[in-house]
Design a protein around this nucleic acid. Structure first.
Length: 218
DNA sequence: TTCATGAACCTGTTTAACTC
DNA sequence: GAGTTAAACAGGTTCATGAA
């Protein structure tokens, strides 16, 4: 092992031209493209590098390197990373050779299952559409909870949120207020304030949640 | 204190040179 | 040509560090 050779990091920087350089090139270098997609996706899910690393059984350093285009990661690692952030390999590369834009149809039950902070409480999240462009304007989720789910009333994130209860009954907390919700009820609120299901009164519960990012520039 | 990053190091794989 | 071996390469982990 030649420890005096130029570091691989330096090589990656020289060869790789990280994220911000993309405007000058119609097609990103693959490592940079992966880095952008993974980082954007992780941040949209409000997950930390440590969270993703833990779920993917990788080190934080490795996830950081991937997000900074410092490695051409193996397929196995990339697959684990994609699993952790709720992307398939094909979805990850969907835009690599294709211009952005176009409508997006998600068939019933075909939403992407993703990992969010409530996942560890037994909540399942299906992302019903995802942004292909630079700006993350909104994120629609189909959230399901059952007997095994725990309450999770302390979630907060920037922006606004709209929820619509499709099935089941629950008490939903927003700050100091509790809202009794039945099928067909809707609730909208500032999501900076801690919020989440306080009491699951009748399971299974299904609710539609749309997170609206204020600036849309995430 | 938390989070992201970089340096140092470890380990498995690949490549090239060598021997038979 | 096949097998062996050492060097180089590349993916990965651990840990220290700096910024917020």
């Amino acid at each position: 092992m030649d420890k005096n050779a130029p570091s691989r990091h330096a090589r990656a920087l020289n060869e790789g031209e990280i994220s911000e350089k993309r405007t000058s090139s119609p097609k990103l270098k693959l490592e940079s493209y992966i880095a952008l997609q993974v980082k954007k996706r992780r941040m949209s899910l409000d997950l930390k590098i440590a969270d993703v690393a833990k779920i993917a059984h990788l080190s934080q350093g490795m996830v950081s390197k991937i997000e900074n285009a410092q490695v051409s990661t193996s397929l196995d690692t990339l697959n684990r990373l994609c699993d952790a952030i709720g992307l398939s390999i094909s979805q990850l590369f969907a835009d690599y050779d294709r211009p952005e834009g176009g409508a997006q149809l998600t068939k019933a039950g075909q939403g992407m299952e993703v990992v969010r902070r409530g996942t560890e409480k037994g909540h399942t999240y299906q992302l019903l559409s995802y942004n292909r462009g630079e700006k993350q304007v909104y994120e629609p989720f189909l959230i399901a909870m059952d007997d095994a789910s725990e309450v999770f009333p302390t979630f907060s994130h920037p922006g606004h949120e709209f929820i619509h209860l499709l099935e089941g009954r629950l008490q939903y907390r927003h700050g100091n207020h509790l809202y009794e919700m039945s099928p067909g009820d809707s609730l909208s609120f500032n999501s900076d304030i801690p919020h989440g299901p306080e009491v699951l009164e009748e399971v299974p519960i299904k609710l539609l949640s749309v997170i609206i990012h204020d600036s849309g520039d995430k």
